[in-house]
C-alpha cells in the first residue's frame, strides 16, 4: 500500500445487503481522513446506491470497489462487469410524477449519488460500468 495515497479494494459478490460491508469500510476510511459525520453518511449512501444499481441492473456477478485516499479528496470507484447502460436514457425522478400515477416508485439511485457526492462520472459500455465519485476534504478536516 502506498502511504501517500492508500488504496483499499473490495470485491463483493451479489448477496443480500452486502453493500453494508462497503459502508463499514467507508466509515473506517472516512475516520482515517477525519471527514465529518455528515460526509461519511453521504459517502455511505452513495456507495449503497451505486452497489444496488449494479446488482439490480447490470447482471454482474460481482462488483469491485476501490477507495483511493489522497490529500484533498476521497475517490471511490464502483466497477461491475455487467451489461452497461446509457445514462442519457435514465429519467430524472420526481416524486410529483410518481404519486398518483402508475409510474414505478423506484429509480432514485443516480439522482441520490449525484446529490450526495462532489463529483460523479459514469463510464459504461457492454463490458461493464465504472462509477467514479469523489468527496472533497475541507481544509479543517
Amino acid at each position: 500500500m502506498n502511504k501517500q495515497n492508500p488504496v483499499v479494494e473490495l470485491k463483493l459478490p451479489v448477496i443480500p445487503d452486502i453493500e453494508l460491508s462497503a459502508t463499514k469500510t467507508a466509515e473506517v476510511i472516512s475516520k482515517h481522513m477525519n471527514l465529518s459525520e455528515e460526509k461519511t453518511g453521504e459517502i455511505s449512501m452513495a456507495i449503497i446506491e451505486s452497489c444496488i444499481n449494479a446488482f439490480e441492473h447490470s447482471k454482474t456477478k460481482e462488483i469491485f470497489i476501490h477507495f483511493i485516499v489522497s490529500a484533498d479528496k476521497l475517490t471511490i470507484k464502483v466497477k461491475d462487469q455487467g451489461v452497461g447502460f446509457d445514462k442519457s436514457k435514465v429519467e430524472i425522478p420526481n416524486i410529483e410524477n410518481k404519486l398518483n400515477s402508475d409510474e414505478r416508485k423506484r429509480g432514485w439511485g443516480l439522482q441520490l449519488v449525484s446529490a450526495l457526492m462532489d463529483t460523479v462520472e459514469y463510464d459504461s459500455d457492454e463490458t461493464g460500468t465504472t462509477v467514479t465519485m469523489t468527496k472533497k476534504r475541507e481544509d479543517n478536516e
Partner: peptide
C-alpha cells in the same frame, strides 16, 4: 392522500433526512 391521512417521521439520522429531502418525501 386518498383518505386525507398523514405520514410523519421521527428520530431520523442526518443522512436519512437528507435522503428523504432529495427524494421529495419531506414535501409531503
Amino acid at each position: 392522500q386518498t383518505v386525507d391521512g398523514k405520514l410523519a417521521f421521527t428520530n431520523l439520522a442526518g443522512i436519512v433526512e437528507k435522503t428523504f429531502n432529495i427524494m421529495g418525501l419531506t414535501k409531503y
